[in-house]
């Protein structure tokens, strides 16, 4: 799947400047590279991305709520570890109950019961990566943006911390960093005064990995309730599953065309 869709990063189809670089690298590898430094060595596996993402793919998730186990929090713990959210510490002097509502949460479990039928549903809830994200519409500086491959992100360099995106998000998917940070992970920069949310493990996308932390964890826990993949590729596992299962979007009425779909409730 990744090969098919990230073929534009592979050696075969590089931008116009790339072949020059590569032939150069082939002949003048080693010491001289240090001086002229074109810098990029292509890997046969999908390595670090060299070309900007395109809209040829649209990343998304499918959650099969029938398989989402009550009381399981594997996806949440995995997300916290992956993105360094487990390194958040309660500032000394903070009131614990308030802090619970102030620390960042990118994914959470929700347990629902139908008022009429009493049927209980468990599901993980995170940024829904809308095609028409309200958070992007309202952001005054354009810091909140949708990447070409459908991932909704915050550019922390231009985020001024106004939190209007949090007001606009129908899923309460975003968190504001309320405290000074000092022990971030290299792959997930995060700091005081900016808004953040699920990135669909964007670093994994850019280094050509298959899936997301939550999906891996759910699989490892034996549930396989979440599938990650390319919503634009009819052959992808997520699309094949979507073709079989009846699924829906949360707040379908808003017509946001979410990238995260739910089945089974």
């Amino acid at each position: 799947m990744t090969d098919h869709h990230e073929s534009n990063t592979g050696p075969a189809e590089c931008g116009p400047s790339q072949p020059d670089r590569r032939t150069f690298m082939a002949t003048a590898a080693g010491v001289t590279a240090a001086l002229v430094a074109p810098g990029v060595i292509m890997h046969s596996v999908a390595g670090p991305r060299t070309e900007a993402v395109t809209s040829d793919v649209r990343w998304g998730l499918l959650v099969d709520t029938a398989k989402c186990a009550d009381g399981c929090s594997a996806c949440i713990e995995a997300c916290d570890r992956e993105n360094g959210l487990d390194l958040q510490t309660q500032p000394s002097g903070a009131q614990p109950t308030r802090w619970e509502n102030q620390k960042s949460v990118w994914i959470r479990k929700v347990k629902l019961q139908d008022n009429q039928t009493g049927r209980v549903t468990n599901l993980p809830l995170m940024c829904q990566h809308c095609e028409h994200p309200p958070c992007v519409d309202v952001c005054p500086t354009g810091a909140s943006f949708k990447r070409a491959d459908g991932i909704v992100l915050v550019d922390r360099h231009t985020c001024i911390g106004c939190r209007y995106c949090m007001m606009a998000c129908p899923y309460k998917a975003r968190s504001f960093v309320h405290e000074v940070m000092s022990n971030q992970l290299t792959r997930v920069p995060r700091g005081k005064g900016c808004v953040e949310s699920c990135t669909l493990c964007v670093h994994r996308r850019d280094y050509g990995e298959e899936s997301t932390a939550c999906v891996d964890a759910c699989q490892a826990a034996g549930h396989e309730a979440i599938i990650f993949g390319d919503l634009k590729d009819p052959e992808s596992p997520i699309r094949m599953r979507l073709a079989e299962l009846a699924s829906r979007q949360i707040r379908e009425d808003l017509a946001l065309n979410t990238g995260v779909r739910y089945a089974g409730f």
């Binding site: 670090p48 360094g84 922390r156 940070m181 000092s182 022990n183 971030q184 992970l185 290299t186 792959r187 997930v188 920069p189 995060r190 700091g191 005081k192 005064g193 900016c194 670093h203 280094y207």
Partner: peptide, 16 residues
């Protein structure tokens, strides 16, 4: 303020 000031976590080597 946001970026890690020391190489930290898996993936740090990939990034550098």
């Amino acid at each position: 303020d946001c970026h890690a000031a020391v190489p930290k976590g898996p993936g740090a080597a990939l990034a550098s």
